[in-house]
Amino acid sequence: MDPESVAAALLDAYATKEPIAPLPDMPIEDAYAIQRHQVQAWVAGGAVIAGHKVGLTSAAMQRQLGVDQPDYGHLMDSMFHTDAAPISAARFLQPRIEPEIAFVLKRPLRGPGVTAAQAVAAVDFVLPALEIIDSRIADWKITLSGTIADNASSGGVVLGTRPTALDGLDLRLAGCLLHRNGRLEQTGAAGAVLGSPLNALIWLADKLGETGTTLEAGHVILPGSITAAIPVEPGDVVTATIAGLGTVTADFLKGPAS
């Protein structure tokens, strides 16, 4: 399988809003190569890498895909949306949404060998966040390599507007309520994310460090979902409330993109 041709097919799916057929299993290295080809194309077109996301951080999702570690994807500047501002659902193919605690870095962080103290020292503040996950692969029929190739099923990010320092926070115990259209859909605690979202940040810094990549100051890091993802449709309003951090809202417009 040629990584460039698969990357081209995935890029075409963004443009046409038509998902591609499920990808066959492939070596993880090939899947990340396909992801990198897409990122290079976006950067060549003027986009900027604004951070990274970590996926498959819950034990349930790892069991579902038969893996024993997370994966990662790239967050581009074009993926970010303003808290509570209208978002065109037509931007996405088959979106789902999940609540997370976003890290914003104040200094570079590079592994391998990152300690918890180094990770904490690199964090400027945290924000409540909603990640819009999406799949360019038909019917979400994905394997581990398939989701990696598809940029870890990245779609969009909504960040809350109240920054909170890590001082005094125990992220493991941060509870979350996820509402859609005023109805409670999911509950959870951030300890579901590899025991603590901080562990996901450390994992990411170490994993990227193996390739010579540094997490840069100002980057946003999404460590993984606190609850199960829920599907969203045009007209839905989704709000996550995370204890100690506040709320964040995604408001999906009805109708076509403007």
Score class of each variant (00 low, 15 high):
Pro128Met: 10
Ala138Ser: 14
Pro95Gly: 04
Asn151Leu: 10
Ala117Gln: 14
Arg162His: 13
Ala90Lys: 12
Phe92His: 03
Arg110Cys: 12
Gly160Asp: 05
Phe125Ala: 12
Pro163Leu: 07
Gln118Trp: 06
Val193Cys: 07
Thr161Gly: 09
Ala189Phe: 08
Asp139Cys: 14
Ile132His: 13
Arg110Met: 14
Pro163Lys: 09
Thr115Val: 05
Ala149Thr: 04
Val193Trp: 01
Gly160Phe: 05
Leu105Tyr: 06
Leu177Cys: 07
Arg183Val: 00
Thr143Arg: 15
Thr164Ala: 13
Trp140Gln: 05
Val114Tyr: 12
Asp124Met: 06
His179Gln: 14
Ile142Lys: 09
Val104Phe: 07
Arg183Ser: 01
Arg162Gln: 08
Ala174Gln: 06
Asn181Leu: 00
Ala119Ser: 06
Val104Trp: 06
Leu201Ser: 11
Ser154Leu: 08
Gly175Ser: 13
Arg180Ile: 00
Ile133Val: 15
Glu131Asp: 14
Val123Asp: 10
Arg136Gly: 12
Pro128Gln: 11
Ala122Trp: 05
Glu185Asn: 00
Ser145Leu: 02
Leu171Pro: 14
Ala152Cys: 15
Leu171Phe: 02
Gly175Phe: 00
Gly188Glu: 01
Ser153Ile: 11
Gly175Val: 04
Gly111Arg: 10
Ala117Pro: 07
Thr187Phe: 01
Leu201Arg: 14
Asp150Ala: 10
Asp139Val: 04
Gly111Lys: 08
Pro99Ser: 12
Val123Ala: 10
Ala122Pro: 08
Phe103Arg: 10
Gly111Cys: 09
Lys106Ile: 03
Trp203Phe: 03
Gly195Val: 02
Gly168Met: 02
Ala205His: 07
Pro163Trp: 02
Ala152Gln: 13
Gly155Ile: 04
Arg96Ala: 03
Asp170Gly: 10
Leu169Asp: 06
Asn199Tyr: 02
Gly168Val: 04
